[in-house]
Nucleic acid binder design. Structure first.
Lengths: 177, 177
DNA sequence: AGATGACTGTATGACGTCATACAATATGAG
DNA sequence: CTCATATTGTATGACGTCATACAGTCATCT
C-alpha cells in the first residue's frame, strides 16, 4: 500500500516548461482514462461520444479534426463503438461518400455518465487554481500554439537561419499537409 | 492584426483548457521532431543523448524515469542509438545487473548540435510571452500535475467519494514570483 | 456530355509506447 | 550459508496513432 510514487522534482532532460507541459498532458490523458475505465472507455472514445451527443450526427473527417487525430484512426475508433452499439453510421443522401456518425440510445445514455465523470474530474483539477490563473494559462497556451505552428511551418528550411527573427510573419513556405 | 482566436468554435469536444493543453503538447513534440529531423533524431532520442551528455553515464531505469517512458521502451531507444554509434553500454562492476549508458565521441558531438536546436526553438517559442507569464504557466502546470496525480490516485476506489473537502495539507502554494 | 481535380473513408504497414512475464543479479533476514 | 524478496534489463504481444495508397464519390470547367 505504498503511497503513490511521490516523485516531486524531476528536472527532466529538456528545458523546463516544455517538458513539464508534456508531462502534464500525459497525466491528463492518464487521469481521464483512469476515471473512464469504469465506463470501459478511453478518452478518445468518450470525447467522440460526447461530441456527437452534443452536436448531432457528424462526418468522420470532421470528427477526426475535432478530436485531433487522423482520419484513419477515427475509423477504427468508430468501428469499435459501433460494434458495442454506442454509435451508428448513417448514410448521407446528399453526399454518398460520407457517413454520418450518430449516437444510439445506449450511447446517449452513456454520454450523460461521461459528462458526469468529466465534470467531476475537471472540478478536482481546478483545486487551488484561481479563475484568472486558468484564463492566463489558456492564453499562454494559445500563444504557445501559435508560436509552435509557425515554428513547425518554418522548419525544413536551412536550420541555422533566422535567429534574429521576431516579426517575420511572412515566410511563405509552402509545405504539404 | 493577428487574427488569432478567430475560431468561434474551436471548442474541442472536451473541456477547454485540458484539451488545449494536450494539443499544445502534441505540437511541442511535433515541433521538436521537425527540427531534429535534420539530425535524424526524434525528441526522445535527442533527450536521451542530451541527458547522458550532461550528466554522464546513467542506468537505463534512471533514464526511463527521467525521460518519462517505460523501462522496456528505453531499451529499444538505446538499442538504436547504440547501433548508430552514438551511445555505448558499459557494464557496471558494482552491479552486474545494470548497464551504464554513456555517449560516444560522435554522440557528444551531436549533443552540441542538439543543444543548438533546442535553444533556437525554445527562443522562438518564447515570442510574445513574458517572463512572468512563463513562470505563471510553470506554476499552474505544477499545481495541475499535483491535482492530476491525486486524482489518479483516488481513482479505482468508489467513484463518487470525496468531492467536498480538499484536504490537501501540504501543497506549498507559497511562491508566486 | 466528358474530363479533371478534390474530397471521404478504408486498408495496410510502420512507429513508439505500454503491460506483462521472465532470467539474472542484488539485498537482506534467518 | 541459504533462502526469500526486490530490482534491472529484455522479450513478447498489444494498443493507439500515423502516413501512404487506394477506390468511390462529388464538384467544376470546358
Amino acid at each position: 500500500m505504498s503511497a503513490l510514487t511521490n516523485n516531486e522534482l524531476d528536472a527532466p532532460p529538456w528545458s523546463r516548461v516544455e517538458s513539464t507541459l508534456m508531462a502534464t498532458a500525459r497525466l491528463i490523458r492518464e487521469a481521464f482514462d483512469a476515471r473512464l475505465e469504469a465506463l470501459d472507455l478511453n478518452l478518445t472514445q468518450a470525447s467522440l461520444i460526447a461530441y456527437v451527443s452534443e452536436f448531432g450526427a457528424t462526418t468522420q473527417t470532421r470528427l477526426a479534426d475535432r478530436l485531433g487525430i487522423g482520419r484513419a484512426a477515427i475509423g477504427t475508433v468508430i468501428d469499435r463503438l459501433e460494434q458495442r452499439g454506442l454509435v451508428e453510421r448513417h448514410p448521407n443522401p446528399d453526399d454518398r461518400r460520407v457517413w454520418l456518425v450518430d449516437v444510439t440510445d445506449d450511447g446517449r445514455h452513456l454520454a450523460t455518465r461521461i459528462e458526469l465523470v468529466d465534470e467531476q474530474l475537471r472540478g478536482e483539477l481546478r483545486h487551488g487554481i484561481g479563475r484568472e490563473e486558468r484564463q492566463a494559462l489558456s492564453w499562454v497556451l494559445t500563444r504557445l500554439q501559435h508560436n509552435l505552428q509557425t515554428a513547425i511551418a518554418t522548419t525544413s528550411a536551412t536550420s541555422t537561419a533566422s535567429a534574429g527573427s521576431s516579426t517575420d510573419p511572412s515566410i511563405p513556405i509552402s509545405n504539404r499537409k
